[in-house]
């Protein structure tokens, strides 16, 4: 369908576009202003750059990490821990949620355990994790899974349980068995919930991996932050935090992209 766009509608569209541009300019402007102020305050000596660091010192630190050849090593360590933990938690969490959907007795038996595990601050298990998994990446991946998996289970289980009653009745009247109800109705109708769960799980898995690196680690961005804090190299702390911001935003952006694709293909 092609419409002739009226000049009134064109004006409306132009106005909308102009607003978006203005918002983007304001966003960038705010960032520039904050960075500029930060740089100025430390350069003029109004604040101690040793305590506050500064944008230029952060860039210098990142550059020196790069020339030392350790920048991508640390990023790689944290990123792989996060991604492995993230995907493992998704697979494990969805499988457990499916199992709980399938079996009502199991659901009722395990409910209090899940509630308690959800409420428990996972960092309390730190010492146990070190003893069970050692002090390497395994412990951090384990922590990431632990932090993320409960959320995945709860989110997906409630999505599975929310499958439409009427469609369920219809399928049963057609003679569908449980596996068919699962494949034809429950899983496809949970797809939007799956994607929104991914968005939350991205954040949780970063929390898990950095928390893990705080407790035990010899490498990674969380390690750089803890180490930098201990030896009072705040430039290093800030640099690692900035990199972390970029990575987390990138991962979130990728999931948002996936969401847009899935929604488009389901609406088409």
């Amino acid at each position: 369908m092609k419409h002739e766009i009226s000049s009134e509608h064109q004006r409306y569209l132009r106005r909308g576009k102009r607003k978006t541009v203005l918002v983007n300019i304001a966003r960038l402007g705010l960032l520039a202003l904050l960075l500029g102020l930060w740089e100025m305050v430390t350069a003029l000596g109004w604040a101690d750059p040793f305590l506050l660091s500064s944008p230029s010192r952060i860039i210098k630190t990142i550059a020196s990490l790069y020339t030392e050849g350790t920048l991508f090593y640390h990023i790689g360590v944290t990123l792989s821990e996060t991604l492995i933990g993230f995907f493992a938690a998704i697979v494990l969490g969805c499988s457990i949620a499916l199992l709980l959907w399938w079996s009502e007795p199991l659901r009722r038996i395990l409910e209090p355990y899940i509630v308690v595990l959800n409420a428990l601050p996972k960092i309390a298990l730190g010492p146990l994790i070190i003893i069970w998994c050692g002090t390497g990446s395994r412990a951090i991946v384990f922590m990431t899974i632990l932090v993320t998996v409960i959320l995945v289970i709860l989110h997906m289980l409630s999505a599975f349980m929310a499958a439409d009653e009427g469609k369920m009745l219809l399928l049963r009247a057609m003679g569908a068995n449980k596996a068919q109800v699962l494949l034809k109705l429950v899983i496809p109708s949970s797809l939007p919930a799956f994607v929104s769960m991914l968005k939350v799980a991205v954040g949780m898995s970063w929390i898990g991996s950095i928390m893990g690196e705080y407790i035990v680690s010899r490498a990674g961005l969380g390690y750089l932050i803890v180490y930098g804090g201990q030896v009072f190299k705040l430039d290093l702390v800030m640099a690692a935090t900035v990199i972390l911001c970029f990575l987390a935003a990138l991962m979130y952006f990728l999931v948002a992209l996936l969401e847009r694709k899935l929604i488009k293909s389901s609406e088409s």
């Binding site: 439409d164 009427g166 469609k167 219809l170 399928l171 057609m174 003679g175 569908a176 068919q180 034809k184 109705l185 496809p188 109708s189 797809l191 389901s266």
Partner: peptide, 21 residues
């Protein structure tokens, strides 16, 4: 309610009982 599955085309909705049975 019609209970057509929104993620399936009309054609695929018509085939649903065939798939089930």
């Amino acid at each position: 309610r019609d209970e057509l599955f929104p993620w399936r085309t009309i054609e695929k909705n018509l085939y649903l009982p065939l798939e089930i049975q």
